[in-house]
Design a protein around this nucleic acid. Structure first.
Lengths: 201, 201
DNA sequence: GTCTATAAATCGATAGAC
DNA sequence: GTCTATCGATTTATAGAC
């Protein structure tokens, strides 16, 4: 008895997801250029030929992953902006979510994002996507920070710089997961200390 | 008129340095596995055959670079410990030096260190070097932090966690240099705010 | 010391069988 | 939908000329 179209569609969607999931780990640990299609295929549990049935090329898989990462981080900031509470409470919420993500599979996304930014061995399409998306996500947090500054909850000074510091710390912590295997992540309060208006000169 | 042995030695030393310098940038931007020997050679300005005259393999070049990075960071922490002043002043000195390094070529070193930690495509020798060196450098900063905590200059809490946060922030800022091309680095005071005992719960 | 030519291995991508 | 066989291009590393 042959499969129905609906069943085929389900298989297709599942295979694509399996490939994406496997590729995330393989790209993160081997790099876009030196990751082998056969690594991705065997991580997902099937032959390398099948990968090409679902994706045109290795580059297309990588680009799909980067798109997903950019969408997710943009969505997170939008959620944070619509959160209830003081600016600091919204930042706390966002920080907690990011730290939780890093504790699971999110750390891999940071690794491929760093590759996307720093590596020359990356599809041209990715290089074009990055600047605008990254900057606009960063800028989306500025209103929260500036509101906190007006309320005296956050240190005065260039809000863009503060956002860069904040994002850099999160990014550094994600990488650090691979440097110190079983060290627990700090809590959101410690991270948010970079916004502290405490003793600023 | 043939060259003397001394002249040959000078040439040898200079060539090795040229290769190392070129390899740093190429490895940082293409990754250890997908960096081509010919990329390194042409970045240094000579043929790929010559690279093999000075290094046994691509892996040996990468390992040399990682060794150098580990030595430099260990030395920096030792210098900081012998610095005069309060714990916070010593941390400030160390932070300033690291930020200055990041502003020049130091950012490339962070990139290859991250690769060394996160990539499977790295020589076995490197994988063995990393854990002990990294941990001992991190631990070397603990006495400074703990002295600052006793003096009330630094927030209470797990000193190791604070060190991880501090190093993660520096690392994240180094990566960020490649994400926002012309954004200035924050000053040391902003970075050191993660030690701030200000408003901790 | 430096270069060019080449051998040997690897891997992305395709074709075709089931 | 899935797999195996294969082509073609790339690249590490070496050999040998200058």
């Amino acid at each position: 008895m042959p499969r129905t179209d609906e069943q085929n569609r389900l298989i297709r969607d599942e295979r694509r997801e399996q490939i994406i999931r496997a590729a995330l780990k393989v790209f993160a640990r081997r790099g876009m250029a030196s990751a082998k299609i056969s690594d991705i295929a065997s991580e997902a549990g099937f032959s390398h030929g099948l990968v090409y049935h679902y994706f045109k090329s290795k580059e297309e898989i990588f680009t799909t992953l980067i798109r997903r990462a950019l969408e997710n981080s943009a969505m997170l900031v939008q959620h944070a902006k619509r959160q209830a509470g003081t600016p600091m409470e919204r930042l706390q919420w966002m920080t907690r979510v990011m730290l939780q993500n890093i504790e699971s599979e999110g750390a891999y996304y940071f690794l491929i994002m760093i590759q996307a930014f720093t590596s020359d061995a990356v599809p041209e399409e990715v290089k074009q996507l990055l600047p605008e998306h990254f900057l606009s996500t960063l800028e989306a947090t500025l209103p929260i920070i500036e509101e906190g500054q007006r309320a005296g909850q956050i240190a005065q000074g260039d809000s863009f710089q503060l956002a860069v510091c904040y994002y850099s710390l999160i990014q550094g912590l994600a990488v650090n997961r691979f440097q110190l295997n079983d060290a627990p992540l700090p809590d959101a309060e410690t991270v948010l200390r970079i916004f502290s208006p405490g003793n600023s000169g």
